[in-house]
Design a protein around this nucleic acid. Structure first.
Length: 192
DNA sequence: GTCGAGATTGACT
DNA sequence: GTCAATCTCGACT
């Protein structure tokens, strides 16, 4: 499986968020390899998006990576969980795409070992769930999706894509109603 | 050094 | 619907 080329990330963040649907997220670890089709994403446009960590180009130690090159890995700890983003936009533009859900492809047994569930559709149907199932952590912060062990490869073209409001952002004024969320219509691994 | 907030999840009323 | 778990970082003393 080949990582997608650098040119794939050379497109506007909202288009990248849409393009990532159907692509394969791969993580190679000592325990084994896991991969899954990306079925849900959210765009964060730092300069104007109040819900983004980098709102109004706020540059901190944590958001630093968002100002860098598209295709970098931005991981972030939220309460007890870890979230994973793909950095987007030109250098100097703090934009990123949050990977909210994947559909398991390879390493199903390993994912279930890391995150025991009764229903398979609960395994990776949320941003904190998929990182645990695939073994992604804050140690991956600053890596590149262009090369192993953590990378994104070509998958399939979704039949139908739905666009809507983002989830789980509170007290963000108008930003909470921005239609920056994309998911594959009808896929059961999309979060609620 | 201490305090508060948060791009979530799972359990419970 | 509500709420706590538990960690990192930024702001302040």
């Amino acid at each position: 499986m080949q990582p997608l080329p650098e040119t794939f990330y050379d497109q506007p963040t909202l288009e990248l968020a849409r393009s990532l649907l159907g692509c394969v997220l791969v993580n190679e670890t000592e325990e084994g390899n896991t991969s899954g089709y990306i079925v849900e994403t959210e765009a964060y446009l730092g300069a104007t998006d109040r819900a983004a960590h980098s709102f109004q180009n706020r540059r901190t130690k944590r958001t630093e990576i968002m100002f860098g090159k598209a295709g970098m890995v931005y991981t972030y700890t939220m309460h007890t969980h870890c979230l994973v983003n793909v950095v987007s936009g030109e250098i100097g533009q703090p934009e990123a795409v949050l990977i909210r859900a994947v559909e398991p492809k390879q390493g199903l047994h390993l994912m279930e070992k890391r995150r025991p569930v009764t229903k398979i559709e609960n395994l990776t149907s949320g941003p904190g769930k998929l990182t645990k199932a695939m073994g992604i952590s804050t140690a991956d912060y600053g890596r590149s999706f262009l090369e192993p062990p953590l990378y994104i490869a070509e998958g399939f073209t979704p039949d139908s894509i739905t666009q809507g409001k983002r989830i789980g952002i509170h007290n963000s004024g108008e930003a909470k109603d921005y239609p920056y969320r994309f998911w594959i219509t009808g896929n059961k691994f999309v979060s609620k």
